[in-house]
Write a protein that binds this DNA or RNA. Structure first.
Length: 934
DNA sequence: TGCGTAAGCCTTTTT
DNA sequence: GGCTTACGCA
């Protein structure tokens, strides 16, 4: 790729702070990657000195891959490249906390849904029901459980993410925040916001607490001072105030900061992101150099012109002045840009489908000087302001015509018939419906089930109803009952495929898998409640809460790139591009969206306490930026359309739509083509860009062991039933990690420290007290035994918890941590994995894993280890020690490549027969029959 | 054009 | 329950 002068300037600026203002399609990923290469050329800069943040994990995978290939091309093999951090700020911060701040060692991270369940379950001690809502002209009233937990959660987020003046907050709100944070702490939880807040405060203590900074904080700050030399922040326009504090904290010791962003693409201000961060960057970081990348290489001149028109109507004092120019190879042909008005949503949907079908096979050139290929379904996307509200007509039309599509965006999962049926099981257990309702619901889902099958299932549910005091609760987990029920009624993919076909079967399983995820979210928080309570409150939660939380989307697993039209919200389209983009339903009050009434977070947190609170409310300018993002996704074809909605609010054309019709490139009617042959249609062919895959070691282990188990777990979302002992293995692991980390520094743990060590790390949240004691003693014994047997070797510990990444095959990376690298008495180097229970993976799979580690360590250090070991911490199980197998090393690359291909092809078949893996698999009941005689 | 009233709706979502 | 928008009336 040839670089422009400005791109080169950005790449070559390696000293001092740098702000890159990069318009849509300006090749910023490439610029970031090449700049990183240049940083690595600097004397004294190692990969571990560079930290690069992206907004999403997906963007991280892409950037990482790009950096790796540029480094390989330009610098060859670079030692320690896996230590270059590319990921989200949350990921980095969590790492930092869990390796330096002991109070967070045991913590697990709650998803948004889980933290809301936590708030509702602890409605009082979370502060929810003691906090007031203050509406204008009304006396303040307390917040309500379930009803307002979402709002409360937003208030909790806002106060930790933004600059809030404590003195301006009512006492109950301050108490609420403290209560919620105490609740998290007491249960060893972190939520997403807390991760960043804690890190930011430890790095840059707010002045009032500066004096109390304790030892671990010094450690963390020292670590940052010693390692961080360069910080790169992508999508800087969407950072919020805490994130900015954390960035400042990371660079306070003299590291160089490079921010990359585009103020015109700020689309998360309703979540607190502050455009002001990028607008005032140059004045806040002294000596910062600013480079504008205003050449758009993605889109045709017409698309660029329209996009400019959209965004140049924003008040200039609210933007960085810049003028995007079209510099790519896409040509404009008349009819590429359309603004079409239809009479009804149905006609609009039909019009879009007509146009897609008509455009199939039109020649399209991906790269300058490249060969044309024919447009295919995956070259189209339809971007809605709100998928949930507006996409129904289009989905119906596409389904009717057989146009393949994938939907992204929150949808109503709980309205699908199979999930309604699953839900009815818990209504039955809660005794709000009778068994005939359950049977009717399942038959209604049309999954080819027979009534007699369902009668067998009802017996399982009766069993759950019959719980009596004294029965161990863990025989009655919601998850366990759910999966036993599914197994008992014969709900298995092989049965379903035979009766209703593979497509419907896959969708049903996907939805039932999501339901399993929902159960897991709920049950992890409610593990302490007795089974009857758990089941009835779960039924209520499903009824009133869960419906809004989960996404419905079948064909998209994030790995495979299906041959289908993408239907998505504008927000989700950020960072993507398509040859042809449709933006339908451009109605007044929808896009730009009208302001919304009702309760909002400022009824809890007074607006006066928040600086620049207005940005949360959303303005026409914000909507303009959103429209700009939507339009600039198009490479060549852009079709805007309007049809009146059913309610009077949405009957008129959008202001943006009307503006667009005034653009000279835009036609309000598609040109007729007198002679089809002039279009030179060619065979539709997908662009063939394979998405990059990053596996974790544990994912890969599941995939090696049984591809179908991987599919059930990671693609459909089936969750394992909770085990009382859960957390023991990880705790023991963490203890060993501390032992070895200290050993690396020459500090050998002695026997008297073992108890303290175990107490610091042991966290088994689902274990009742007697079991907790048992686990504690078991852990102490295991660690003592280990120390006795290995004390003489501890000084030869070389690494503990070493992050590695393996790139044995293009497009597929495997990332993980090596438990331990040590020298043996023979002087040989050994790579070690610990095991702590019998339920661990088969030896053969662990052997594969260890050989991947060997490859990873070789990539990182240039050294090939001699031996691999499986150290079993459980007394009764044996350990394994064997030489690195060169044949296996050769095969492993092929195995990884094959795994990647499987994922991309969605080829994860069931095993043909019952095997050892099935015997320990959590999901065997929804997969196959257990053989009657072994 | 200005004002008062009543109808209608209550996104977007990453970590 | 709250707030914005549309609309009717002067």
């Amino acid at each position: 790729m040839r670089l422009t002068t400005k791109q080169r300037a950005a790449i070559e600026t390696v000293n001092g702070h740098l702000g890159i203002v990069a318009c849509a399609g300006s090749g910023k990923t490439e610029v970031i990657a090449q700049r990183v290469v240049n940083l690595l050329r600097q004397p004294g800069v190692e990969p571990r000195n560079i930290v690069a943040f992206t907004f999403t994990e997906r963007a991280a995978a892409e950037l990482k891959q790009r950096i790796f290939s540029r480094v390989r091309e330009q610098l060859g093999d670079v030692r320690g490249l896996a230590e270059l951090f590319v990921g989200t700020m949350h990921g980095y911060a969590l790492n930092l906390l869990q390796s330096h701040v002991p109070e967070t060692f045991k913590c697990t991270v709650l998803s948004e849904v889980q933290s809301r369940v936590l708030i509702d379950r602890n409605s009082k001690s979370s502060g929810l029901t003691n906090t007031y809502i203050r509406s204008t002209g009304k006396p303040p009233r307390k917040m309500k459980r379930y009803r307002e937990s979402r709002l409360y959660q937003r208030a909790m987020d806002l106060m930790r993410e933004d600059h809030v003046d404590i003195d301006q907050l009512p006492a109950d709100v301050v108490d609420g925040l403290n209560a919620y944070r105490m609740l998290l702490r007491r249960h060893h939880y972190l939520d997403y916001t807390e991760i960043i807040r804690l890190t930011a405060d430890l790095l840059l203590p707010p002045s009032s607490t500066a004096a109390t900074a304790a030892a671990p904080v010094v450690n963390l700050r020292d670590h940052v001072r010693e390692t961080v030399q360069h910080v790169v922040v992508d999508e800087y326009q969407d950072t919020n105030p805490v994130q900015e504090q954390m960035i400042k904290g990371l660079t306070q010791f003299g590291a160089n900061l490079c921010v990359v962003g585009d103020d015109d693409q700020t689309i998360y201000q309703w979540r607190g992101s502050a455009v002001s961060n990028i607008l005032t960057f140059a004045s806040r970081y002294t000596g910062a150099k600013i480079v504008d990348l205003n050449e758009n290489f993605r889109s045709s001149p017409a698309v660029v012109d329209l996009a400019r028109q959209v965004v140049e109507r924003i008040d200039p004092s609210h933007r960085l002045t810049k003028s995007m120019t079209a510099s790519g190879h896409q040509r404009y042909d008349r009819g590429d840009l359309l603004a079409l008005a239809f009479k009804s949503p149905q006609e609009e949907a039909a019009g879009i489908c007509d146009r897609i079908e008509w455009m199939l096979g039109l020649p399209f050139i991906d790269r300058p000087g490249g060969e044309p290929r024919g447009l295919t379904y995956s070259d189209f996307s339809v971007l809605f302001r709100s998928v949930a509200k507006d996409a129904d007509a289009l989905v119906a039309e596409m389904r009717a015509r057989g146009i393949p599509y994938i939907i992204k965006g929150l949808h109503r999962l709980f309205e699908t018939p199979e999930v309604k049926a699953a839900k009815s099981c818990f209504d039955y257990i809660a005794d709000t419906v009778d068994s005939s309702a359950v049977i009717a619901a399942w038959l209604d889902a049309q999954l080819g089930l027979r009534e007699e099958d369902l009668r067998r299932g009802i017996k399982i549910l009766d069993d759950a109803r019959g719980w009596t005091q004294g029965t161990p609760w863990d025989t009655y987990t919601i998850q366990g009952i759910y999966q036993r029920f599914l197994g008992e009624i014969g709900l298995r993919e092989d049965h379903l495929e035979a009766s209703i076909g593979p497509q419907r079967s896959e969708l049903a399983f996907y939805n039932l898998g999501r339901f399993s995820t929902a159960i897991g979210d709920y049950e992890r928080i409610h593990f302490l409640s007795s089974p009857p309570d758990r089941f009835t409150t779960f039924a209520k939660w499903l009824e009133y809460q869960a419906g809004y939380y989960y996404e419905e989307s079948d064909a998209d697993d994030g790995y495979a790139q299906p041959e289908a039209v993408t239907i998505a919200t504008v927000h989700q389209a950020k960072g993507m591009q398509w040859p042809a983009v449709f933006i339908p339903c451009m109605r007044s009050n929808r896009f730009p969206s009208k302001k919304h009434g009702g309760l909002n977070v400022f009824h809890v947190v007074p607006q006066a306490a928040v600086s620049d609170a207005d940005r949360y409310r959303g303005s026409e300018e914000d909507e303009r930026r959103l429209f700009y993002v939507a339009a600039t996704r198009a490479q060549k074809y852009l079709t805007l359309s309007f049809s009146p909605g059913t309610s009077q609010l949405y009957r008129k054309e959008s202001k943006f739509f009307v503006e667009a019709t005034r653009n000279t490139y835009v036609m309000t009617k598609a040109p007729t083509v007198p002679d089809e042959s002039t279009l030179n249609r060619i065979e539709p062919t997908p662009a063939g860009s394979k998405p990059d895959i990053v596996f974790s070691f544990s994912e890969l282990k599941y995939l090696f062991e049984c591809p179908y188990q991987f599919k059930l777990r990671f693609l459909y979302g089936f969750d394992s039933p909770l085990q009382k002992e859960l957390g023991y293995g990880k705790s023991l692991h963490d203890v060993m990690a501390e032992v070895h980390k200290r050993a690396v520094k020459g500090d050998i743990v002695n026997d008297t420290e073992v108890e303290g060590l175990v107490d610091r790390h042991l966290h088994a949240p689902f274990a009742p007290d007697p079991l907790k004691q048992k686990l504690r003693l078991a852990a102490i014994r295991a660690v003592r035994r280990y120390l006795t047997e290995n004390r003489s070797r501890l000084p030869w510990t070389e690494h503990s918890e070493l992050p590695v990444e393996v790139h044995l095959t293009p497009g597929v990376a495997v990332a993980g941590r090596i438990d331990l690298i040590r020298r043996l008495d023979t002087g040989e180097q050994s790579i070690v994995d610990y095991k702590s229970d019998e339920r661990a993976h088969a030896e053969e799979v662990t052997r594969d894993q260890l050989h991947i580690y060997v490859a990873g360590y070789e990539e990182l250090s240039g050294n090939r280890a001699d031996v691999v070991e499986i150290l079993n911490l459980d007394e009764r199980s044996r350990s394994v020690r064997e030489p690195v197998d060169d044949v296996l090393m050769k095969d492993i690359a092929d195995k990884i490549a094959e795994a990647g291909d499987r994922i991309r092809r969605n080829d994860m078949p069931r095993k043909t027969t019952w095997c050892d893996t099935c015997a320990t698999c959590d999901f065997s009941s929804i997969c196959r029959d257990r053989p009657t005689s072994p």
